[in-house]
Computed example of a mutant assay.
Amino acid sequence: MKILYGVQGTGNGHIARARAMSEAFKMHNVQVDFLFSGRAPEKYFSMEAFGDYQTRRGFTFETKKGSVSYTKTALSNNLMQFFKEVTQLDLSSYDLVINDFEPVSAWAARKQKKPCIGISHQNAFRYSVPLKGANWIDKSVIEYFAPAQHHIGLHWYHYDQPILPPIIHTSSEVSDEGDFVLVYLPFEAIEDITDLLFHFNQQPFICYHPDVMESSQVENIELQPLSHGRFQHHLHRCRGVIANGGFELPSEALSLGKKLLLKPLAGQFEQQSNVATLDQLGLATSMDSLDISSVRQWLRDSHVESVTYPDVAKAIAHWVVEGDWNTQARLADKLWQQVDFPSYVSHL
């Protein structure tokens, strides 16, 4: 079997899932080629796991000071270029396209009538799960942005739907917990982040941000450029995580037993829904802005217990290779039976 795996490159969570899936497929006699879109080629980092991967422009969204900018998003995307990329992507040598919300490979698969399996957190919103702030445009994007014949959604709880638990990709590192808090707020201005954290001068922070080019120490804040390996090291050792409302980082933090303070990206229904879901489940604390009082209270909160998730990537890879792709509900039931939530989690 030869697979083209398309990955949405705008968020590092999609790439983290692809790393886990890449390792899982190595256990099978398959060739997996990777294609990424949504980010300038020079902006990708720590991509060794994907070999000779391809990039395309695809589609992306633009932000400004923690909010989606629809004007900048419209101006930065080129519909004619997208159609050209779809038309020129030759899938004749592939048996299957797997897609993590990546539109070029998804639409090329539809155009060339290749089987396509969509595996993404976004696919969970095709089912009856909590939504917050979703309008008809958002629902249309979920429906049409990256079409597939089989849709596998990933979420933190099943809500009696045929969706799967998160794909977790963390290193096997075992280390003692430090006293620092890990901060990853890539959609916020770095000046706004440091202004917030300076108020807690007795608390050390390690902050990763795409605008940081080299490591430096500014008062109680250690600023770090993006690096998958270093970030994983600090994620294992931190006492808590302050982040936006993506899916993969909170999933990794939950599996490691790290408390979470999440600030969703304004105007992005997925992040708003994610944060509301974790808040309702009792698995995270939320704040709508970079709020001093919210951070202060969260720092005082006690430690949390970890959520135990099975090896979802391994199970999906086996399911894909087996070829019986109409058994998604059975796969979901099997995996959710292996999930162990802390006793304080509110099951909705």
Rank of each mutant, 00 (worst) to 15 (best):
N274Q: 06
L235W: 01
S306Y: 03
H236V: 09
E270T: 03
L290E: 06
V312N: 04
Q272H: 12
Q224S: 09
R239K: 15
A313W: 05
L249C: 04
Q224R: 15
G257W: 00
R239E: 14
S302K: 13
Y309G: 02
Y309K: 04
D301L: 12
N274K: 11
G282P: 11
P310G: 11
Q297F: 01
R300V: 10
L290K: 08
L262W: 03
V312G: 07
S251E: 06
R230S: 12
E305D: 15
H303V: 11
P225F: 04
A315I: 01
A315C: 02
R237D: 07
K263I: 10
L278P: 05
D301V: 01
L262Q: 08
M287Q: 11
L260F: 02
A284P: 13
A315K: 15
F231K: 14
I242T: 10
D291R: 06
V312Q: 05
L254N: 07
L235V: 13
S289H: 08
L265Q: 05
W298Q: 02
L278W: 05
Q271V: 06
I242L: 14
L262G: 10
L281Q: 06
L281H: 09
H228V: 05
S227N: 11
H236C: 14
F247W: 02
A266W: 03
Q268W: 09
K258I: 08
L262V: 04
P310Y: 01
S306E: 15
G257P: 07
G229P: 00
M287E: 15
Q272G: 14
